[in-house]
Write a protein that binds this DNA or RNA. Structure first.
Lengths: 218, 218
DNA sequence: GTCAACGTTCTTGTATACAATATAGCACAT
DNA sequence: ATGTGCTATATTGTATACAAGAACGTTGAC
């Protein structure tokens, strides 16, 4: 069963925005996109509608859709909420996590470690996301899990630049281990705080994020 | 500037689902809806797309869209997340709220009280939502505010049945006062906990919610 | 020379036409 | 009688055609 074209196009347009092919405030022309993907305007419009709802683009009535990159403030707000959502997931997980899942977390952590030593950043990104995804799942709240995944996806491009901070990977690994330890002990508060400060953008990370925004804007 | 038809239709279809005109698992026929609203299928499709993204309906490819009322588990999960989001908003607000906003909260509370004494449940609903909306705003995090409003809207029909619980209104008012007091003192933890237990579905409220689900399903 | 108003053109929003797929009903075989 | 396969029908997904509104340029007046 092949997917709807409009679904595929949604992801493709998203890619183009992440890639920087379309800059901030740029208008996305329906006919141009239709030509690019060799389809009619209909599936393009459906894709743009979805992107508008996800917040990646802004839909000004009868004017068109415009790329809407989050500014520094919006970004900090999103990271702040992400930290709280993940901290909540950790708090829930501390009581609800299964022994099996503890093992999964350790395995994912192992693979993260391997990626660090292989200097394979791409692999690290994937495995790191996996680690967090397990955490969401083990919150035992499917709705929270989905919300976390949604926001994670939204912040993905910015989180990546975050990890480029020198020495960040090793520090990040230490934090992962602390998180797992707290979860294993069932220490809800510790797990929650560990995750919050792991995800939160503060100190060094804040300055790095701001700096990366400037270079991206040029 | 008159709104797009598809925007209006989105709300109208949402109404029909809340009203119970369309039951759970019922398929929403595009042509029927188009006839009902005297438009073509295009704006109807756009409306359904939006509703699918908001989670109110499920979109099965090439099959159609189906009403997807949350079951007991999904509902509890959503309320659990709502409680956490609002508790977070309260924690932030405790440090960030302005004196002016404290006044607004007290005013809203006053109006809630008036509604209780007038036995005007409809008014109470509105003012109660207003009270919470101020709280979201004073979190000082615009993204969190939007997320709270989104989920509040999604849970609206169920929250209303919650308040039908006898004696709940007065209890709810007491809790509001405690929340305001904690915010005024800048007691983040107290404010947060007060809001969490105010929103959370537990004890009496849990049984009431489950009972109301049964009667709604018949 | 500058600003405003009108008209043209371009773009979005909606309607309709067409294509492709899933469902249901009927017939036929076992 | 029941189950399977084929055909007809209904419904979604996509393309195109049309309408309405916004942007832009040109022209004219002050």
């Amino acid at each position: 069963m092949d997917q709807k074209r409009s679904d595929i196009i949604t992801n493709q347009i998203e890619e183009l925005i992440f890639d920087g092919t379309f800059g901030d405030e740029e208008r996305l022309d329906e006919v141009q996109l239709a030509e690019r993907f060799a389809v009619s305007r209909t599936p393009v419009r459906e894709a743009l509608l979805r992107l508008a709802q996800s917040g990646l683009v802004e839909h000004r009535p009868r004017r068109g859709v415009f790329v809407k990159q989050p500014g520094p403030i919006a970004l900090m707000e999103m990271f702040e909420v992400m930290a709280e959502l993940e901290a909540t997931a950790a708090r829930f997980a501390a009581h609800r996590i299964s022994d099996n899942a503890i093992g999964e977390l350790k395995d994912a952590n192992e693979r993260c470690n391997a990626a660090v030593e292989q200097q394979d950043t791409e692999k690290y990104y994937r495995e790191n996301e996996q680690f967090h995804a397990i955490l969401y799942r083990e919150s035992g709240n499917g709705f929270l899990e989905l919300e976390c995944l949604r926001l994670q996806r939204r912040l993905q491009p910015f989180r990546r630049t975050q990890l480029r901070l020198r020495g960040r990977l090793k520090q990040s690994m230490k934090e992962h281990q602390q998180i797992v330890a707290a979860l294993e002990e069932g220490e809800a508060t510790q797990a929650s705080e560990a995750v919050r400060s792991h995800v939160a953008v503060q100190g060094e990370k804040f300055h790095h994020l701001m700096a990366s925004l400037k270079t991206a804007a040029e």
